[in-house]
Nucleic acid binder design. Structure first.
Lengths: 348, 348
DNA sequence: ATGAAAGCGCTAACAA
DNA sequence: TTGTTAGCGCTTTCAT
């Protein structure tokens, strides 16, 4: 098999100069050519099966039409929709995403960041940010365009797209309070991760707004956004705060762990304890019981992040934006009135 | 901010010639240099924050250290583990994966294939293959290294890594038969997809080997490997074959649809109908009831596919291999003895 | 052990 | 409207 055809090959076949062929092949510059030249060159390209060598182009233009995406872990069901949202938004612009998993490990994150830099990415979308992430400084010093998605970093030096966590937690708590719950715990996510911190802070605020006391609304920290961590947190919670009748979980994985631990200890959900998740990740509706949760538009978040990044690549001086997308409570089977309230209802 | 440093910048700082600097920076050629020169250059590179420009390198070497991965849909829980397996296997070799979603659409598949070609990928891993996929011819004509994962294409012209579907179905049926089931249906996947065809064929074989008749073991085709399709298939199945007591689903998504349809029609699982899934995808254990299924080592499949591809890139004449990884039945709550058999058991 | 020089395929400034 | 030319940053053969 012979080597891949180049512009020169196409030019020879179309009987024009290399640069003419190159112009004909590039939509941006084909306007300055006579229509018949353009079509002749294009036909020659088609016949030869020509595809442009993006390395040569990238070397010349110093743009790769590639962006780097850093996520914690692709097998965490939260991220595939974000990634697809990014990919779909990039597609019409001819951009491609390079995806790397950090596993929440700063070392891995840093090495992937450098590797992506070597591949000349035009910018980054970071879904793995931790508070005070060193990446921020590095990207800022380099002047590399960067957009944060889902998680933020504390200092607003880059544009960010997320869900409206504050509102989501408020609505979740409103739902529980409306059902009659007054003893509501929060199974918070890990320290140093913005979504965990923001949701925990929002829990505190909302609970106060509802007129509940701190004693009625304990917060238990889970050390990761995982099922296991949710189970352990639930175990501890049940031991230290046995009177709670409802739980707002930091995310759906923690909620699932909670559901499992509840079942393991013989507590029925929602009869004994109501549980609200967060994210409405795939299969949250298939759990037992089907999880009441806050739906976050992950694909849209990814798409918006991509758009913001493209905007910044085109216009590096563009203003920094924080985009909070609306979330929505999805009520399913894991929440109900607390036992006492149900009893009162029956008496009324 | 100034432009990114190049080898020349490093060379200047280290007071050596560009080519010497390049050699020092490249592990393959740094051996021919004096140790002190190497370390001097490396230090200069570090101080400057130098990263090699992979476009220039790729243009020169005609190798991109990038491979293209075509999957149907990243949000299908089957694929993230495969992709991660691929990524982890590539990482130590300095390779990166470019991932594209085909949505099972031949047009999208073709256009992504060409786009990846333009990005000079050194090879492809295809998880989206359909039988008689035109990609096969194109890749063969181009001489592009390619490995199939999960699905095959009918003709064995490329190496392929999959799970041992034949054995998986056999074991699933053995489990059901051992429980006492004699009327077992198969909710098969869509035509033209190898995993669907192979599992359906294996179902026919295994059922015969068990001494069951065709009348006892109906096969219902679902038109996609999706929940909805599984629900519809189950609906039809229950209407036409009301005596069945067990179902072997073509995959877990179909099984989930089946579980839902069963519940919707008031049939209890496993009490009235046992269900076995296929894949053991994430959260299969969180369904209600927890799904008995055949575990397929997806991450390992991805990793093996990557290894095979790297091998072929290094040695284009390498022999074509078909690697079938062992699968394993995971018994959970969705399977039990049929009602009659349970009754006999009680009488015995 | 190191330096010199060419060239990968493309684009874009300049010339005609 | 089309041709000429230089050069992006790297690797690599050849020379020293």
């Amino acid at each position: 098999m012979s080597r891949r055809p180049t512009v020169s090959d196409v030019a020879d076949r179309a009987q024009v100069h290399r640069s003419t062929a190159a112009r004909a092949l590039n939509p941006a510059s084909s306007g300055m050519l006579s229509p018949e030249t353009v079509s002749r060159v294009r036909r020659a390209a088609r016949e030869l099966g020509y595809t442009t060598n993006s390395f040569a182009r990238g070397l010349r233009t110093a743009r790769s039409s590639t962006i780097g995406v850093l996520i914690p872990d692709l097998t965490n069901p939260l991220f595939p929709p974000i990634v697809r949202g990014i990919q779909e938004a990039l597609l019409p612009h001819g951009y491609t995403a390079l995806i790397a998993n950090t596993d929440n490990d700063p070392g891995r994150e840093a090495s992937h960041f450098e590797a992506l830099l070597a591949r000349q990415v035009d910018g980054f979308i970071i879904a793995s940010a931790r508070e005070n992430d060193p990446l921020i400084d590095r990207a800022e010093r380099l002047g590399t365009p960067m957009v944060l998605v889902n998680r933020s970093t504390g200092h607003g030096r880059f544009s960010m797209v997320g869900g409206d966590d504050r509102d989501g937690i408020r609505v979740a708590l409103g739902h529980l309070a409306g059902l009659g719950h007054t003893r509501i715990a929060h199974l918070a996510g890990p320290r140093g991760v913005s979504t965990a911190e923001i949701r925990a802070a929002a829990f505190r605020e909302s609970v106060t707004a509802l007129g509940l006391t701190l004693a009625q609304t304990p917060v238990m920290r889970c050390d990761a956004f995982t099922e296991d961590s949710g189970s352990r947190g639930t175990h501890q919670l049940l031991a230290s705060e046995p009177e709670i009748t409802a739980v707002v979980a930091g995310n759906d994985l923690i909620a699932l762990g909670c559901l499992r631990q509840l079942a393991a200890q013989g507590a029925r959900c929602p009869h004994d304890v109501s549980v609200v998740g967060y994210n409405d990740m795939r299969f949250a509706d298939a759990f037992s019981p089907a999880l009441t949760t806050v739906r976050v538009p992950h694909a849209a978040m990814g798409a918006e992040a991509a758009r913001l990044l493209l905007e910044r690549i085109a216009e590096p001086a563009a203003v920094i934006k924080t985009l909070l997308l609306p979330v929505e409570l999805v009520v399913r089977e894991s929440t109900a009135a607390p036992r006492e309230a149900a009893a009162w209802g029956a008496w009324a």
